[in-house]
Amino acid sequence: MSLFEIIIISLIKIVIAVVALLLTVAYLVYFERKISAWAQNRIGPNRVGFHGLLQPFADVFKLLLKEDIVPDAANKPLHTLAPFIALFVAFATYAVIPIGPAIHIFGYDINLVVADVNIGVLYVLALTSLGVYGITFAGWSSGSKYSLLGGVRSSAQMISYEVSMGFSIAGVLLLSESLRPIDIVNSQYGWMWNAIVQPIGFITFVVSAFAETNRLPFDLPEAEPELVGGYHTEYSSFKFAGFFLAEYANMIIASCMIVTLYLGGWQIPYIDKLGLGVTITTLLQIGAFISKVVFMLFFFMWVRWSIPRFRYDQLMNLGWKVMFPLSLVNIVWVAVLIMLFN
């Protein structure tokens, strides 16, 4: 393939990925509202369009039509920059998530991933850590005590949970012997899903993922009762929409990561034994990936509307005294497994 072709193919992938992401985010908000309503025996949005399906667009228009307010006390460049950092990180992370096996189309071999990086997992870890800059900047530059507290909490939380997250992944890497997401997926052939092989690692990773995405029960950076809106208290209109978008995009990435690392990625156990055609297999596998991600997203929301927020000291306790030791136990467990069966 020439360089030109590579660029074109990458651009097409990027456009598809971004559009898909944006649409998903829009409908995630819709489903978030629906699921919260269902959990509370309500109906949820049902006025805009058929069963309220146009609600996300109404929400977006409303947000964009609002006045963009920048507080006098704010540091204006950083205040403007912050949501873009958050957005950039969210979108950039998406680049390394594989949604299916390599396919052969129009005479090209194409990996169903924007960038097939051989250190993909490291890349994701690095970028998600960058995401905290967006939030911390937003908190500091707003010139509001609530925002600042939100920002500070966020960075502390990120650091605490990144540790156990990293150790959980270490278990996965021990098994796959690669940092490339595609390899990791391939290493979970059959029922050898990491979630089954190393359940403790799975749990610590999922919990850390909740914390990293600032979702309930770990949404302390934006805890409404105490911090108004947390780091985005002083944001409105498009910039607020930016944070909103980033939060949901992060959720998608977290789900994708969970699926990729622990739930076998696009794999359907022993599908190759059924002797189906290549195209159908590929489509089924993409479908499998998407349904696994959708389930994880549902799980995110489900948890949000079931479990109350932790107190800050509880959060730190859990992070350092429970999650961290557990992830260490997990590494030992994986090491023992490798010693025994390899």
């Binding site: 699921i35 269902w38 959990a39 025996n41 489900w302 948890v303 509307w305 079931s306």
Partner: peptide, 13 residues
Amino acid sequence: GLMLTLKNMFRPK
């Protein structure tokens, strides 16, 4: 807790 909310999702509105 999760099962409780799940159950509620299917109860009449």
